[in-house]
């Protein structure tokens, strides 16, 4: 078994923009610090892997029909925060693993071709998450 201290496994259940940021920042941070990282995209999180949907999530609080999100985005732009697109690309470039929940696909009628398959390493279920998580020092549910 791999060294337990050297892996982070994140369940991304939320599709909210700010929470997708959290997952990708932590995932990228782990890879940058020499750990392995896996993000298991499920439910609303998996929606963000549909084509053109990555940046489309609402703000988890004070979204105010998109006005709050717009304000936060302006501030992020001023602070020069990277886009989710760049973060997902960096995550893959540094060897991060993306898992897609196949039950969510079935419930929500999502076909593989609806998703950005070039980013997805595995279509799987809870057993695969547990296998990843049991050898991870850190596992988070976002």
């Amino acid at each position: 078994m791999e060294d337990k201290a050297d892996k982070v496994t994140i369940v991304l259940h939320s599709g909210d923009m700010d929470k997708v940021y959290s997952a990708l920042i932590i995932g990228n941070g782990a890879l940058a610090m020499g750990m392995e990282a896996t993000i298991f995209f499920t439910f609303w999180g998996l929606q963000r892997l549909k084509r053109g949907a990555l940046e489309k999530g609402p703000l988890s609080k004070m979204n105010m029909l998109g006005l709050g999100k717009w304000m936060v985005k302006q501030r992020m732009k001023r602070a020069n925060v990277a886009t989710l697109e760049k973060m997902l690309q960096d995550f893959k470039e540094l060897g991060g693993k993306v898992m897609a929940c196949d039950m969510t696909m079935e419930i929500m009628g999502i076909r593989p071709e609806d998703l950005r398959q070039e980013f997805i390493d595995e279509y799987c279920a809870v057993g695969s998450y547990i296998q990843e998580a049991r050898e991870s020092a850190i596992t988070l549910f976002i």
Partner: peptide, 13 residues
Amino acid sequence: GETCPVPLVEVRK
């Protein structure tokens, strides 16, 4: 001019 987590990520790359 870059902020979290870009410097770490670019160094890792």
